[in-house]
Amino acid sequence: MAAFLLRRLGHAMLVLLVVCTVTFAIVHAAPGGPSLLADPKLSVAERAAIAERLGVDRPIPEQYARWLTRLARGDLGNSFLYETNTASTIAQRLPNTLLLAGTALLITIVVAIPLAAWCAERPGGWLDRIAGALAMGAISIPVFWLGIVCILVFAVRLGILPAGGAVGAEGGASLADRARHLVLPSLVLAAAGTAELLRYTRASARQQYARPFVRAARAKGVGERAVRWRHAMRNALIPAVTVIGLQLPRLVGGAAITETVFSWPGMGRLGIEAALARDYPLVMGITLVVSAGVLLASLLVDVAYLALDPRIRPDQS
């Protein structure tokens, strides 16, 4: 197990380097360049002075070499947009994103898996039909629309929940205040993920129920509860873990649209701002953190496979 983890860690470092190189190339190839230089009112001399200060007047390979050298010293550089240290800018946003995406993921898991088990056992039942219809809706409705509608209903019309932000504008960030601000964005963010997980898990569970070992277990007189959870669902969860794993990167990457609609100060919105402004140091910093998160998530998924299915061995993966 230790050797497996060590090998995966080595791979991860290599992947990170490749991701950074490719991102650096792509973000520099994108049209426009840093928004600081795109102010049409700047004179030629002013534009040149800004480019020199930011270091973007140098050849791109040189800029990359400088970035890597600084990275080796643990310095992610200064954001163009914010004139602040990239690492501390990211550190300010990361807790908010962990909170929002984590809550959404928790809602997803807690709602989708028990519901999927229930629906798989009674296909075509009333709950299965309602859940199926809701899931279809949740997958089809665009997040920005669902978000705005929720704001209009719960904040504007009913006035029971705040329309946006992570805390009240006038400070006083009590736990209750934070929780109230968390309700709408986390539910909207969880909607599509829950629907997806529900559909995958339900389908996978249905397959398991039809397999001979479930019938064999029942024939042996195993109790229905044990058949469901120990035999059918345990096997049904392997694809579900994959789906959950795909959602894990959001814990660090944030959800750009939901965060924008709900004015949530998280990583997703920061990433969008950085990309639109061609804030190269910030884009690279976010890429680094998010890719590290993705790699960690995929490692966790592999470990979860091992736990769920003893037939999968580390040396085979």
Binding site: I148, A155, G159, P162, G164, G165, A169, T260, S263, E273
Partner: peptide, 17 residues
């Protein structure tokens, strides 16, 4: 208040925020 989306600004104005 940082509210990046114009539609969200309108909604917050209507919600009294």
């Amino acid at each position: 208040k940082v509210v990046p989306d114009l539609n969200a600004q309108v909604a917050q104005l209507r919600a009294g925020e």
